[in-house]
Design a binder for these strands. Structure first.
Lengths: 144, 144
DNA sequence: GTCCATGCAAAGATTTTGCAGGTCC
DNA sequence: GGACCTGCAAAATCTTTGCATGGAC
């Protein structure tokens, strides 16, 4: 089994799409891939300080369009980003510390099938965020 | 059967919570209740023009905290608001025109039960947005 | 060499905050 | 009358854009 770093894979996909691989771009990808938690555009820009804010925002949008990162809606309704490891997945979000993790949900198709039956909509996609307390916060006795 | 306007109901609930009912506040509530589509804070502020922006934002946040309005995440990830007609519900969002409607989803509990089984999280809430084309856009042959 | 990407700084968009004055109860 | 609310304007965020320069291919 060949082990390819997450970042390398993302870079290849960008190259395949005809995007140029510049140093700032690689650094953004590297950083995004190395974080397995969620982050805001501003945080990312701060961490990659020498790189211009605009470049970070532009690259983030590029990755989003390519489906290489996804947005997460936190419990308070604010939005942040996260590397997208799978084609389609959902998020489990901790209401206390804001940690997120990907989760696979079984039986979602059954729910969507009901929507198709009950409405006139042509259903093509969906987003599900499940909120709760992560094991650590639960143990700490955190509330919300 | 007594018919009580939507707005009256919301105002009562605010009063019951000990909030003062001022003229600007009623106007915001009135406006929110009268729209059955989604809107942004900025749109609302513009429509209620003589009322200060800050007041609109503050009132909106108040209504959100009280669960009288809810946030909707559109297909492009942007967030807007909508009167919350039911205690708990989900949204059906049109990818083409951005219209939204409330939808009841059956069997969601089964999906959540699986999450509880499969993770260590203490699951307490969830958000589901279903994306598609509304009947009108579908008929128009709109794509996305 | 060509075209795309970058960086900067400025503009734009959105939301929050301090404070003086006004209003509800 | 007291506490809360409002409006204004300024500030704080967050994000996008124009343009000249630089780098990938």
């Amino acid at each position: 089994m060949t082990v390819v770093s997450e970042a390398e894979g993302l870079v290849s996909r960008l190259r395949d799409q005809g995007f140029k691989i510049t140093s700032p771009r690689s650094q953004v990808v590297e950083r995004v891939a190395s974080r397995d938690d969620n982050f805001t555009a501003e945080e990312l820009a701060a961490e990659l300080a020498p790189i211009g804010r605009a470049t970070v925002y532009r690259t983030l949008k590029l990755l989003l369009d390519q489906g290489l990162v996804c947005r997460v809606v936190l419990g308070d309704g604010s939005v942040c980003y996260r590397a997208s490891h799978k084609a389609h997945h959902h998020h489990l979000v901790c209401l206390s510390c804001g940690a997120t993790e990907d989760v696979h949900l079984a039986d979602v198709e059954a729910v969507l099938a009901r929507v198709r039956e009950a409405t006139e909509y042509d259903v093509v996609d969906h987003r599900i965020e499940v909120y709760g307390l992560c094991p650590r916060c639960k143990r700490r006795g955190a509330k919300r």
